[in-house]
Design a protein around this nucleic acid. Sequence first.
DNA 1: CCTGCCGGGTA
DNA 2: TACCCGGCAGG
Length: 464
Amino acid sequence: MHTRRLVKRSVIGSRVYAPGLTGDAAPLSGVIQAVKQDNRDASTGHRRNVYTVLMQDGSLKEYSEEEIAQMTAKAPLKSSLKSSCNGGQRDGPTQGQNGGMQRGDLPSLSPESTEEPRVLEHKRTGRALEPEKDHTRSVSLLEQKRKVVSSSIDVPQARRSEEEVDMDKVTAAMVLTSLSTSPLVRSPPVKVSEGLNGSWKDGGFTPSSYSSSGYWSWSAPSDQSNPSTPSPPLSADSFKPFRMPSLSGPPDDNIDEHDGNSLLFDEPIPRKRKNSMKVMFKCLWKNCGKVLSTAAGIQRHIRIVHLGRNCDSECSDGEEDFYYTEIKLNTDSVADGLSGLSPVSPSVLSPPPGLDQRQPDGTNGAKSENSTTTPLSRSAPSALYLVHTDHAYQASPTHNQMQGFGEQRSQTIAVLSSPPRAAGSFSRKSRGEGKKCRKVYGMENRDMWCTACRWKKACQRFVD
DNA sequence: CCTGCCGGGTA
DNA sequence: TACCCGGCAGG
């Protein structure tokens, strides 16, 4: 509706490229003045549009839609797309041809974009999701092309011709950006745990993904290659560790490698944090897994480290977007778990070598590895679990472009789950270490014990 | 001695 | 199945 009107209106006045009179390689640019329908196509019998184009040299010419489409496709994509987006108000077909994704270009998509980014998001999303309904074929051709490209984004080595893919990636990136940022921004403030499960069940995996706003469009084809689609729900299970006072700790140490540039960009992070959710961005490159706090940061990381580009964000072509994913940390839950423990929350970022107060001195002095893994196993994994459960959950359905990702995933999970196990076997299943019901509530409050404790069984409430 | 809890018993 | 408790073992 919105969408269609926008695109349709934009055709008139769009700048297109037409072959010169001789049909040679040097195209002339022109502006579409009118579109009319022509039923007289006797050969095929189907309706076609005829476009009246005001050429550069002032002459008026009529072109069939096929011709228009061809010209448009041949012409530099960036400019033709731009014209279809902003109604041709901008000129300069050569403008910004080499720059890849140019941030400066984005606002020109829509006049109101500066004041209403959300509206813009919707428009972008909408456009990307149902382009085929568009009657303006030349535009829809582009859209479809874009769709095909974005749904088959591959690993970097298979690069298409830069110029051609350029705009496709930009558009895809914009869609991805809007998709990945909108959910949390839009979701009403709810209790964290509920909000997560609830909002995901409501919005994520149910048919509501067809909603007109379309920002949950898991099934949309243009979305398939989207690794930064909104993260899926954290299952109830993944929260359990956080409720256990004996398992708690600060998040992944990688997480704290905050990028210095985090605040340089206009990322919606601060808003997301309102729900006690910390949104991080994780690099999906095999054997990397770097986590940064901002999309810009992770993009830069991917661009520089993996794509081998040295230039700044200016020369981003949006491709980085496909190689990282968004993960969410429930900082509330983590804090919750911590509060049950010691007042000092050990920072995993800089694990103090002798942190483990319980270390049996002397007996294991040589086991320096254990002394470092043990504190981690007692603090970090809970957060890690959240991250990686989340990650696994969200990665499997869509990230077909990350070959070997599953492998990496199982790796990380294995690594993460081993420390607690090691800690357990370390002291040969010692008795429960934490406080149990008996200690916590005392004999006089026996009725407050968990049943297992009452029955002299292994405590269920304070599981080690 | 305290504590956690296994193993077994009882209703 | 729900509950209780003797007794063992670690600390």
